[in-house]
Design a protein around this nucleic acid. Structure first.
Lengths: 201, 201
DNA sequence: GTCTATATAATGATAGAC
DNA sequence: GTCTATCATTATATAGAC
């Protein structure tokens, strides 16, 4: 019955979820393969049966991040988006960023170490950004978003919002703030604060 | 004559500037005390004559960051600040962040490892933020900045600008953009883009 | 102050038994 | 699949000669 309701995670799966948790809690450099194995209650050798090295674990976690993004992008393809849709899309983005927060904390170093990982991450991220742009464009078309005089303005506002999405939770962590639903909501509020002067509501 | 024009830096000084450069280039975990010593063309043992360990080097670099901030705060105490003053203050902030960019890239992990370092960094940063707030308040008083209806708005806008100041250059690095004067200027532009709807100019 | 030599520990990783 | 045993490598750090 356990098999049906809560399937026992495979060893491989436990390694990945444990690694993600430890990386999020302590940072990549602070967590060795030995630590991960110990936290999984398996031997160090066993870990290497599933992954050739630590980098491969990181790479797989990045692939899951990418998959979650792709998934989230699918879901947000509603055709007559409202500001509430924007609100929930932004909140969903924050959730993903939080789930894989160690990556966003250490992006520069992690991407520099692995060209392949860098390429796939940036590609997915680019798609997300463009989806976000389409969303705002549709608001402009619908008159919800008043187009600014300066044609560069929309691009710049988009970039600010995207940066907030990626770094707001890190910023909260730096401040020593416990991250909870309220923290995420505050991040949503900030993005709407930036856009607010252009919203005709 | 060399002594007068460009004094030969002490070994201690060379260790610090070399460590800063390597950390900025490669990240903290990637650079060992051996690497630093080699880049200074001194023996590993000699490095330990000046610093008890790697953490002490990092801590000293943080102290220099703090000193640069304090210094910058002094300079920005002009009494009838204009928007151009704001512009140059923001640009100066970006310069400091860039000079010590490894810290801003890895803030969460670095601060967690050292409570003392964390306390002093957050204290200085808090002062900088409050100085920034005073600046904006003075603009409100002078009528340059139109106070928004929502009383929370100013706080939120300030927080967005501060976050931009701390993370914009990291964001550029993630994008693989070479950081130059233009990149910094773009960061200044973004902050003014956020504030622009409230400026009566 | 600076070096060489070395101690100690941790890490990433592999081989082979079960 | 999982473990034990083991290794090569690297990193931090110290002792003592010069």
């Amino acid at each position: 019955m356990n098999t049906l309701k809560t399937p026992i995670p495979s060893t491989r799966e436990r390694i990945l979820t444990t690694a993600l948790r430890l990386f999020n809690e302590q940072g990549v450099a602070e967590v060795s393969t030995n630590h991960i194995a110990a936290a999984c209650s398996i031997s160090p050798g066993n870990l290497y049966y599933y992954f050739r090295n630590k980098q491969e674990i990181i790479r797989e976690l990045f692939q899951r991040l990418n998959a979650d993004w792709e998934n989230s992008l699918q879901l947000s393809q509603s055709h007559a988006p409202s500001l509430d849709d924007l609100r929930s899309i932004v909140a969903a983005n924050y959730q993903i960023v939080w789930q894989y927060r160690f990556m966003y904390r250490e992006l520069v170093v992690l991407l520099r170490q692995d060209a392949e990982l860098r390429a796939s991450f940036l590609a997915t991220r680019q798609r997300g950004f463009e989806r976000f742009r389409e969303l705002v464009d549709s608001f402009v078309a619908a008159g919800v978003f008043r187009e600014p005089d300066d044609p560069q303005a929309v691009d710049e506002l988009l970039e600010v919002c995207w940066l907030l999405n990626e770094f707001w939770l890190t910023y909260l962590e730096v401040n020593g703030r416990r991250i909870d639903e309220a923290g995420v909501q505050q991040g949503v509020t900030l993005i709407f604060r930036v856009l607010q002067p252009y919203l005709s509501v």
